[in-house]
Simulated assay, not measured.
Amino acid sequence: MAARVTLQTIADRVGVSRMTVSNAFSKPDQLSAPLRERILAAAQELGYVGPDPAARALAKGSTGAVGVVFTHSLRFAFTDLVATGFLGAIAEELAPTGLSITLLTSADEGDIVPARDVPMDGALLYSCDWSSRAVDFLHRRRLPLVYVDQDPADDIPSVNVDDRGGARAAARHLLDLGHRRIGLLMSGTYGPYGLVGDLHDAGVVDGHSSRQRLLGWLDELVPAGAEVIAARQDGTGLEQARWGARLLLDRPDRPTALLCFSDAVAYGALQVAAELGIDVPGRLSVVGFDDNPLAAQVRPGLTTIRQDIAAKGKAAAATLTAAIARAKAGTPAPAEHVVLPTELVIRESTAPRAEPGEHLR
């Protein structure tokens, strides 16, 4: 078996102290360029890959990683266009800092609780379930945290978008087009699912964004006297969206317009409308939320509410790195709460309400 290569092995080969070799890896600015190159060349020749990451983290008091915690399975981070855009912006913002991203789920996996066990310097909680053990452990670890798409808390920094204002703009757009029978297609992680009776029941939606978007819709629809029919589906996947859309559209008294929780949900509604022979926007107007890349690619192009996903990711990463820096320096500051604007983007999926009778197949 080959002898283990250590810092001292390299120091003996180059003829310098062990500390000088250590500085070549951890404090390169303290060495001349030629000396550091000699040390690194010797390390490569001897097969030394660098200091042990765990030992380095212990010595520096930093893991070099931040967590991004999802309520959904981690597959969501790679398949949802909003989540992937959000993560890409975080990675771009963190690149100059040298911090890496660790993806975690807050879903309860029995004895396995990554949020409890994985080393990290801080974490972004992205639309998480507050009742999960993962969230509880993160708080108990006293890590620097930033809430994203969560209800703000006085002592925790947060980054949100103006979900309620955006939803108001979407509902107002449909009212201005003459629609008065409007369907709401919502999504959630926890039941009950199906047609919704009391939209003011707190259990109708879960999560900050869902709640704010519903409130925004109702801010406009209720004073206008609109007739509202709503359905709640299990999650944001395409099949769930199709199921919810069919509840609203496959009926003789269907709405003339739909307000959808997201563009992904709206896409499912467009598919169901096509299957039922309902022309969009001639007989049905559809509005999404997010303005993810899908919104401009589908036909007809989707009218939606734009949130700046890249700005949200960069703001979240910057807020977290600032919180980590303050924690290391022992200089607490009031929690910062960032709210990013939203914007109505009108495309081809909305049009004036058809004359009475024309909405029927």
Rank of each mutant, 00 (worst) to 15 (best):
residue 1 M to G: 15
residue 1 M to H: 15
residue 2 A to K: 15
residue 2 A to P: 15
residue 3 A to F: 02
residue 11 A to I: 09
residue 11 A to T: 08
residue 11 A to M: 05
residue 19 M to P: 10
residue 22 S to A: 14
residue 23 N to F: 10
residue 32 S to K: 11
residue 35 L to F: 14
residue 38 R to F: 06
residue 43 A to E: 12
residue 44 Q to F: 08
residue 53 P to R: 07
residue 69 V to D: 01
residue 80 D to M: 05
residue 80 D to W: 00
residue 83 A to D: 03
residue 85 G to T: 04
residue 88 G to F: 02
residue 89 A to S: 07
residue 90 I to T: 05
residue 97 T to S: 11
residue 101 I to H: 02
residue 103 L to T: 07
residue 104 L to A: 11
residue 113 V to K: 00
residue 120 M to N: 00
residue 125 L to R: 01
residue 129 D to H: 06
residue 131 S to V: 12
residue 132 S to H: 04
residue 135 V to W: 01
residue 138 L to W: 00
residue 140 R to A: 14
residue 142 R to K: 07
residue 145 L to E: 02
residue 147 Y to R: 11
residue 154 D to E: 13
residue 156 I to R: 03
residue 163 D to W: 04
residue 165 G to A: 06
residue 174 L to R: 02
residue 181 R to Y: 03
residue 183 G to C: 10
residue 185 L to H: 06
residue 193 Y to H: 15
residue 193 Y to N: 05
residue 201 D to S: 13
residue 210 S to M: 12
residue 220 E to Y: 00
residue 224 A to Y: 10
residue 227 E to H: 09
residue 232 R to G: 15
residue 234 D to A: 15
residue 234 D to H: 14
residue 241 A to Q: 14
residue 242 R to V: 13
residue 245 A to N: 09
residue 247 L to N: 05
residue 248 L to K: 01
residue 255 P to L: 03
residue 257 A to N: 11
residue 260 C to Y: 08
residue 260 C to H: 08
residue 262 S to Q: 05
residue 262 S to N: 13
residue 268 G to T: 09
residue 270 L to S: 14
residue 270 L to V: 10
residue 270 L to A: 12
residue 272 V to H: 02
residue 280 V to Q: 08
residue 282 G to E: 11
residue 283 R to V: 04
residue 283 R to S: 13
residue 290 D to S: 06
residue 293 P to N: 09
residue 294 L to C: 06
residue 295 A to C: 07
residue 308 D to G: 05
residue 310 A to N: 12
residue 310 A to R: 13
residue 310 A to Y: 01
residue 311 A to M: 02
residue 316 A to T: 02
residue 317 A to F: 01
residue 320 L to T: 01
residue 321 T to D: 09
residue 330 G to W: 01
residue 331 T to D: 10
residue 341 P to R: 00
residue 341 P to C: 04
residue 343 E to V: 02
residue 347 R to E: 12
residue 348 E to M: 04
residue 354 A to C: 12
